[in-house]
Nucleic acid binder design. Structure first.
Length: 274
DNA sequence: CCCCTATCCTGAGGGC
DNA sequence: TGCCCTCAGGATAGGG
């Protein structure tokens, strides 16, 4: 499941290969992945346009096109966006192929189709609700001053629910929510308003730490995630808790607890996390 | 406001 | 070898 570090890895991979290139062909194989636009309009507004920027906001990938519109991609659970040669065989569940003027192709594949593609001007996409309101970016240098810790302490919800709320903090998903809670030594089922200033401060610091480390390792690939070139990331082996329910805690050696919180698998150490 | 559940969807893995 | 079941969970919608 691509979260912030995985999407960031893809964006960094693709950026040098895409910026400055012109899209010569847009082949929308499965039109249903496109939201708020029809295929003909999509083709007309992408073909012949130049890619000016490749950026990430939360878990969204923005390709800034000449003319001012953004091609916005959310990878959902199983989405991949990879650069491939034109002659490479096309994998099943490939929904969009963008061919560039160097004859290479950017291919969007998503077996479970939880992902989506949008096209429009950024302001208009936000106003229409096509793009949700997103909270501060954990990788931003201003994150510590974003007010996240105060907003966290003002919520009556469980800490994990707050971390997964994209309007509270952008880009956090199930894996890094658990990792941040472990690093901050906070139980994910704590009510956020019961957190001390110190605990909220530790979570504020933990989010960028776990995410920067995952970016350094090029993302977590326990199942579907692939980088911009189709390769796996190395972060799964470095995770503290996610996927390790029943195994020993790396800090105290106690058995990690696995439960369900808000419908999500949640792993924590009941000795280290209070 | 918040919680819970269902929905979308495919593939992997377990039990028999 | 095949069939059925469960599970994985990002986002969203609807009910309580």
């Amino acid at each position: 499941m691509p979260e912030l570090p995985e999407v960031e890895t893809i964006v960094r991979d693709l950026r040098p290969h895409l910026v400055g290139r012109t899209l010569t062909r847009a082949d929308l194989i499965r039109a249903s992945v496109l939201r708020f636009a029809d295929p003909a309009t999509f083709q007309a507004r992408t073909e012949g346009h130049r890619v000016g920027s490749v950026r990430r906001r939360g878990k969204f990938i923005h390709l800034g096109l000449s003319g001012g519109e953004h091609l916005v991609i959310h990878l959902g659970m199983t989405g991949t966006l990879t650069l491939q040669r034109r002659d490479e065989p096309r994998a099943v569940h490939t929904h969009l192929v963008l061919e560039m003027d160097d004859r290479r192709q950017l291919r969007y594949r998503d077996p479970r189709r939880f992902g989506r593609i949008l096209l429009g001007r950024p302001g208009q996409l936000e106003r229409s609700g096509a793009l949700p309101r997103l909270g501060p970016e954990p990788l931003s240098p201003n994150f510590a001053q974003s007010g996240f810790a105060e907003a966290l302490r003002g919520s009556g919800r469980q800490v994990k629910a707050v971390l997964l709320d994209q309007a509270m903090v952008a880009g956090c998903g199930n894996i890094y929510a658990d990792e941040a809670c472990f690093l901050a030594r906070v139980r994910p089922d704590r009510r956020a308003h019961t957190l001390s200033r110190a605990e909220a401060g530790r979570l504020l610091l933990a989010l960028p730490v776990v995410m920067r480390e995952a970016v350094r390792l090029r993302g977590t690939s326990f199942s579907d995630f692939r980088d911009g070139f189709g390769a796996k990331g190395e972060a799964y082996e470095a995770l503290f808790v996610y996927g390790r329910g029943g195994l020993p805690c790396v800090r105290c050696g106690g058995t990690l607890q696995q439960t369900r919180l808000g419908g999500r698998t949640t792993v924590y150490c009941n000795r280290c996390q209070s």
